[in-house]
Write a protein that binds this DNA or RNA. Structure first.
Lengths: 200, 200, 200, 200
DNA sequence: TGCTAACCGAGACGGTACGTCCTGTCTTCCC
DNA sequence: GGGAAGACAGGACGTACCGTCTCGGTTAGCA
């Protein structure tokens, strides 16, 4: 029995306004330049109203990310029946999003938020990258079922490689991943490197 | 002719003490909790002495990382002649280091430092992960030359996948990469997923 | 016709609890540390219930003082027929009360409350010190009628001097007024300073 | 040996600017409306620079008062040789100052500052009213020496009565003391009330 | 040997943001 | 309609750091 509700209920408007403000500010200025005061001010809300809901900047950002304010949800690979094409298309789309300034800002903000000591960064990554990872594994498994991909491979490792490479290129931002890079990565993962010739 | 050195030379003791202090503090408390004042205090140095050398916190951390205060330098893959074994060993060793608390702390600090708007994060990543990436590509190229790996694959993409997967698992830290995970990843990259059977 | 009472009548229990809480808190912590939230909490009452009755902290304190929660009411000088003794006794008693920690705390709280810009401090002082002042004047007038005190003196000025000296010693609290101080003050006011010898 | 001076010395300009700002703001808005942030802002100074010197609002106000920023120093009674006239003139002048809005504001601010739990209010009153009190006693003693005032009276009590009556009228501010009130008070103190006729 | 420049530790400076506390108002459910 | 509870916008609190500055005091090369 969850302690009967007493007093004025928390305003959903304020809740929403805070997350929206945080998302806008983090895209505009990056995580380091983001301040709780600015979030509250832009949301038209007292600071206490922010702190009543989240204990820290990183928690607000995490919630904004998880609730879809920072990134449009639903980026699972399609299933056209051709797993190779689906994989390629998904990776190209993801790379394109991360090549935009907004996408990169989100990823970098997430990495910074996750570095905060008091953030449940496992949960953050799990909820943010987890769906992609899981959807990738599912699509790959379907590809195996189709007979298009070989059985026995560790599909989780493949998803790690795909998500990890995207993340790495986005964070390092020497140069974001291009469509060609994406295709090359898919090619390697499909064809492998082994020539079958054993070492001497 | 670079303006002959005049006045008191900068103290190498102070230089070293600052980097050591920064490294210790970042491992102990994470990047977010790190402050320039604490670095200076722990190094027994005035703040100006820090700012005279580096313009920002992230620059100090970057230097600490690059100069081997945060991470033991020299982790290139060995060349035993067997590229598969070398790759596996390197990935296992890297995964093991990142599974330690210290290793994870360093990576997370680096990610946070790189998220600083005013950091040359490209340079940071390049200098930090670059050598590994380059060494991997070189070792892979040698493997191709040996005839052990097929020619024509985009080796940079392979290195991206390896480094990225490590990074992803370390940052997400749901569970750090195990030796088995490492082996599975190498296996996939070597053997590929493709059965050679085209889509319907 | 005074708008017939509608709805639930105001709780006298709450009223009383608020004043008692305010009195206790002001004695315990002084006026500056007193907060409306603490008053409401200690009274077991919602803040609105306080604000419904009084518009400000100083008003609550004023009411607490005036209603006898802060100071026992009824300290007028006695009338034994001997105005000198009565005056001395009254002043000694007042000085003794102000020498206690509680008494001093009340006076200091009152002074602070009266300093609030939006307090009707004239009313506060009038209601708090006014009765004493008036009773003193009355007792002095009776002394004049008795023939014990000379006519023609400005009795209000005498009362000002008595009340003012008490207040001053209490607020300054270098040392509260002693019985001897009280006697000396009465002595001066009765005997005067003038020798009757004019200035050169 | 007072610990050799190290680091940048504290700015006398800032010190002075803070006290001036505090004095202006307290006269303008009263003690309750005074904030540390406003003091710092008006002084063109960081808040820390205020807190580095004084621990609280009341301490700043106390210092401003004691250093003559709130009240022009030097209000001792003159010595024309005629103690009665001197006393009357002094009391009239003091009453006139307290009747002005500025004077009243200062006294009320002082009373409020002295009510702060953590203020050394004894020192505040002693240094603020003490000089007047002492000068009054001195002038009265000179009057005794002149033969104009009777010996044997407790001159401290007389000064208490004068200062106290002024303070009381200023704080209560039902009506500030007028010149006539001042004259009446001096008259009573000089002539006394006693008719010499004993009680029945 | 003395001059001058750049360094050194220390710590104050004007600022910004922090996270907490309180104000006076409001909104809910309950009597 | 009053009452207890508690959220609301607002704003001051006192603290912690930022990056800069100003002290007295080294420590070097150059005169």
């Amino acid at each position: 029995m969850p302690a009967k509700q007493r007093g004025r209920p928390r305003s959903p408007r304020a809740h929403e306004a805070i997350l929206r403000a945080a998302a806008e500010l983090v895209v505009a200025g990056g995580y380091e330049r983001l301040t709780m005061e600015a979030i509250a001010a832009r949301a038209g809300v007292g600071k206490q109203t922010v702190y009543r809901r989240w204990p820290s900047k990183s928690a607000v950002v995490a919630e904004a990310a998880l609730s879809g304010h920072l990134v449009p949800a639903g980026r699972e690979p399609a299933d056209t029946g051709d797993v190779v094409t689906d994989l390629r298309d998904w990776l190209r789309a993801a790379a394109a999003w991360l090549a935009e300034p907004g996408g990169a800002a989100v990823i970098r903000a997430l990495a910074a938020a996750a570095s905060d000591r008091d953030t449940d960064s496992a949960r953050l990554y799990e909820q943010f990258t987890g769906p992609f990872h899981a959807a990738l594994v599912a699509r790959l498994a379907a590809g195996v079922a189709e007979g298009r991909l070989r059985a026995g491979a560790e599909l989780g490792a493949v998803a790690d490689a795909l998500v990890g490479a995207l993340l790495y290129r986005a964070l390092a931002h020497t140069a974001p991943m291009t469509a060609d890079d994406a295709d090359a990565l898919v090619d390697v993962l499909l064809s492998g490197l082994d020539t079958g010739i054993p070492a001497d």
